[in-house]
Design a protein around this nucleic acid. Sequence first.
DNA 1: TTGCATCCGGTACCCAGGTACAGGATTACC
DNA 2: GGTAATCCTGTACCTGGGTACCGGATGCAA
Lengths: 148, 148
Amino acid sequence: MRQDIEGPYLRSGQVAEQAGVNLQTLRYYERRGLIAEPRRSSGGHRAYPPETVTLLTVIKAAQRLGFTLEEVAELIDTGRRGHPTPDLRVRAQEKIAEVEARITDLTTIRTALTQVVNAGCDSLTHCSCPDCPLPFADLAEDRTHEES
Amino acid sequence: MRQDIEGPYLRSGQVAEQAGVNLQTLRYYERRGLIAEPRRSSGGHRAYPPETVTLLTVIKAAQRLGFTLEEVAELIDTGRRGHPTPDLRVRAQEKIAEVEARITDLTTIRTALTQVVNAGCDSLTHCSCPDCPLPFADLAEDRTHEES
DNA sequence: TTGCATCCGGTACCCAGGTACAGGATTACC
DNA sequence: GGTAATCCTGTACCTGGGTACCGGATGCAA
């Protein structure tokens, strides 16, 4: 038998290659709810509509913007359900705040590192430099575990 | 029997509490070579010298500066071996470069996110805004897999 | 119809930096 | 000496984003 699904459907390997992702990743995304379960051939092989490739491109773009897979799944989901909410913009604004907070952290760290270099610290444990700035007890960077 | 190791030795729970780390973390650091194997009581309980608390403080400081545990272990190690190299300063300078690269990445991401907000994008997959800036195919952020 | 490429599901593994739990031994204190 | 608190080893699990491997089934072309 030639092929038992008509139309421009792609097999998983083709989708993976065209989108530049690993085949396993494709099934991983399916498990995570990022891409819908595709049709199957009579033998059980997946048959994807071509726009799946575009969807994967979009997912990768959102990842590059700093969204987690869970956030991407939610964004796709609320988009699909026709929610008229400006969800993406709100999420993007929240993400900007996150990114800026991270930049602030990194800037603080860079400042501290610069102090280490300028002071001429020569050991973590037995630094002999005068006015050694270690150990930076005030440096936070632990926002993930903060509450309230 | 009262205690069978003389002097100001601390038991693991005391070290953990004073340093503000989990007891498991202490043993994890020992496995990773960040802290030396301490003496043992006759029953097998660890007996730490008090400066272990300071060492843990230093480790945490180095982590806050962006060093991985492996890097911290190396820094402690070359410090202990009396290497006269200005290792810490060199490492700090390298770390500054890493941090700055990361800041650059995040700044690019922030710019892209701002474009999403300003353009009024309303969907990842079916954005209706004019001149939609998605999907940012040019955004890199994947330096970890680059070679050469 | 035969042979090779591809795909299937299930499971295990990778990174880092830990954390948790089980079941038994030791220590500390009254 | 009783008993609670602490500690021991070993092993498994966690997060996030995948990747690898296995044995078996399908797909496709000559």
